[in-house]
Simulated assay, not measured.
Amino acid sequence: MSWNGRSAGVLMAAAMVMSVAACTADSGSGGEESASCVNRYTYQDRSYRDVANVNFTLGKKLGTATQPPCEDTGGQDKGEEPVTTETAYEVDGISPKIAIAIGDTPKTATFFAAYSGSELPPEVQKLIDGH
């Protein structure tokens, strides 16, 4: 491979890393992580982030969860992206303080967990592990 070919590959890889880094978690106020582009909601003053590959059973309707706008523009275009709301549901066997399901309908509801950092609550990890 020529020097130009390797240089182009390195530049392409660097551009990909920079675009991914634009939507990563950073340190927010209060010592908790706040992520700008992750799928997150708030319900009863708790923040929840979506968790993939969780086998769960939906419980009763709890109320309304709010999704703040994505803040990946560095403060530009503030106020253009509206706050959205969806229905929050219980997850059978887990306290709503730990996890909820969120969606327009029970069929579209997805699993969200309340956690900070990179550690999932043990109750959620058990569902992922199939216990």
Rank of each mutant, 00 (worst) to 15 (best):
E90T: 06
P122Q: 06
G30H: 05
D72G: 05
R46D: 00
E33A: 12
G75F: 02
G9Q: 04
V17P: 04
V51C: 04
A114W: 02
G30T: 01
D104L: 15
P82T: 00
A114L: 03
K126F: 12
P68R: 11
C37L: 02
K107W: 09
L127A: 05
L58T: 03
L120H: 10
V83E: 10
G130I: 06
Y43M: 07
F112N: 01
D104A: 09
N4W: 09
H131F: 12
E71A: 11
G130M: 07
P82W: 00
Q67Y: 13
F111K: 09
K126C: 15
A113E: 03
I98Q: 15
A8L: 14
A114F: 02
P69E: 13
G103L: 04
A13Q: 12
E81S: 07
E119F: 05
Y89H: 06
V10Y: 05
G93K: 02
P68I: 02
N4R: 12
C23F: 08
Y89F: 15
K78C: 08
L120E: 14
S7F: 13
T66S: 12
I128R: 09
P82E: 03
A99V: 07
S29R: 14
S95M: 10
K60T: 12
A15N: 14
R6Y: 15
A8I: 07
M12C: 11
N53F: 15
T85M: 12
K60C: 14
D72W: 00
Y43C: 03
D26F: 03
S47V: 03
V38A: 06
L120C: 07
A15T: 11
Q76H: 15
G9T: 05
E119L: 06
D72E: 11
A21I: 11
A99G: 05
P96G: 07
G28D: 04
Q125D: 05
R49V: 13
C37Y: 13
R6P: 06
L58H: 01
R46Y: 02
T105R: 14
D72T: 00
S47G: 00
G130Q: 06
G130F: 07
D129I: 06
V10E: 10
Y89P: 03
V51F: 03
A14F: 14
S95A: 13
S19M: 10
K107C: 11
S19V: 15
T66I: 08
T105N: 07
V10L: 13
G75T: 07
K97D: 15
A88K: 06
L58P: 03
A25E: 01
F112S: 03
S47P: 05
E81W: 05
M1T: 10
K60S: 09
L127D: 00
I100R: 02
C70K: 08
G75W: 01
Y43H: 05
S118M: 06
A101M: 05
A113I: 00
C23H: 14
K78Y: 12
S29E: 13
D77Y: 14
S95R: 11
K107G: 12
D92M: 11
P122V: 09
M12V: 09
